[in-house]
Design a protein around this nucleic acid. Structure first.
Lengths: 221, 221
DNA sequence: GGTTCAAAAATTGGCGCCAAAATGTTTGCA
DNA sequence: TGCAAACATTTTGGCGCCAATTTTTGAACC
């Protein structure tokens, strides 16, 4: 609305990506251009551009003369993406601990608390966005901006949290607890602990105490 | 190549990306749509779509009402991208060694030899493509397809090898030697050595013998 | 001779229309 | 009543034109 082509199109891509991530469009849904231009009040051309960009990002798939549909990742892909995230985010831990300051910890506590509050009072979408906010704040402690970009893209490409990961209330609450554990590990400058928690958090697996610290990705499938 | 729009557009993106990587369009060059549609004999619309996709990939930058120009990465970004590649490719080493077979080693030797031959007889573009072929063959030993995708994308986003990395003949020859060293390390199942060579190869730094084995990314800037 | 302003050429970018393809529906026939 | 074929509607996708903006060229003036 403000300027001409790029910010509009870019935010349209972001909006659509967020809606897909948040589960507004479930995997397999055919995205009809007419519906999209009404929903986002955008022009046909902008919708098509956004669709193309999302196809490049692998969020949707394009079938010529048929349309675009939301791409459902199979388990193998989802698992592989999680493994890549684990590699990158655990590799970022050292630099995060090197660079963290007290204000960062305060911010993170606020964001983690906000997420926990929204488990009770908020909508799924609010929870989703609060979760993203926490993780972005955490990740940007890493000075490597490109690493942050790659992880952000991977998170967007992975299966949407509300749809597939937060299946139960208990699982969401567990995520909230893990956020706080991460902050504690950060405050204690305990890189090993942070890596362990992050790995379990991303993989959505139970924290195994006997697990090795280093997150070797070994067999990925 | 069979159906209508997508493969055409996709290959156009690939062609333009390769030309940018190979240094046909130097950083800063304004990509005029008319020239592009003549060079690739594509329609105006396909050119614009490809340009948009390349902008999303950060290979070109878009200035509204002015056009698209080849994006020159600053040193910090280039260094950060290299660091991310080091993290991912060294993390892949274990699974590569787990999965390697004799035919893989043979293929790699052929590709490495081909690269070395082309140092003398081939054009820059041939060298560039032979190098890519070797690295892709090596990387796809890793069973994590998504990791391969991310690294491939990162390689395409980084500074083009002919333009900025292979400044001297000596440097190219050193790269060729390092390829062979990687194969030797693979054959010996020596993960540490392979990680060390890979790190130096990606960062284009001299192999420091006293360097620690584990490639901590620490300070990235 | 240099600078500034204006007109012209070139380039980008948006919008709409229409054809091709696919889907859904109705109708006719066995 | 069930199936199939033709028709109608919907949707995608390509093409072209023209407006808006920028760059370049040229000329006049200081």
């Amino acid at each position: 609305m403000t300027s001409k082509t790029d910010p509009v199109s870019e935010s349209l891509v972001d909006m659509m990506a967020r809606d897909i991530q948040a589960g507004v469009f479930t995997p397999g849904t055919w995205l009809k251009q007419i519906d999209l231009e009404k929903r986002y009040s955008a022009t046909r051309m902008d919708v098509r551009r956004a669709l193309d960009q999302l196809a490049l990002k692998r969020l949707v798939r394009h079938v010529p003369n048929k349309g675009y549909h939301v791409h459902a990742l199979d388990d193998r892909q989802a698992s592989e993406i999680r493994d890549v995230r684990v590699i990158l985010e655990t590799a970022a831990v050292d630099s995060m601990i090197d660079n963290i300051r007290d204000t960062d910890l305060e911010d993170l506590r606020k964001l983690a608390t906000r997420f926990n509050d929204l488990i009770l009072t908020g909508t799924i979408l609010e929870q989703y966005e609060a979760n993203i906010a926490f993780h972005m704040r955490l990740l940007t402690l890493c000075p490597n901006q490109e690493l942050v970009n790659v992880v952000t893209e991977l998170r967007g490409r992975g299966p949407s949290a509300p749809a597939s990961q937060w299946k139960t209330r208990a699982r969401v609450e567990q995520s909230g607890r893990e956020h706080l554990m991460m902050i504690d590990a950060l405050e204690a400058r305990d890189a090993s602990a942070l890596r362990r928690i992050l790995t379990a958090h991303i993989r959505q697996t139970a924290l195994a105490e006997s697990l090795e610290v280093q997150p070797s990705q070994r067999k990925s499938g």
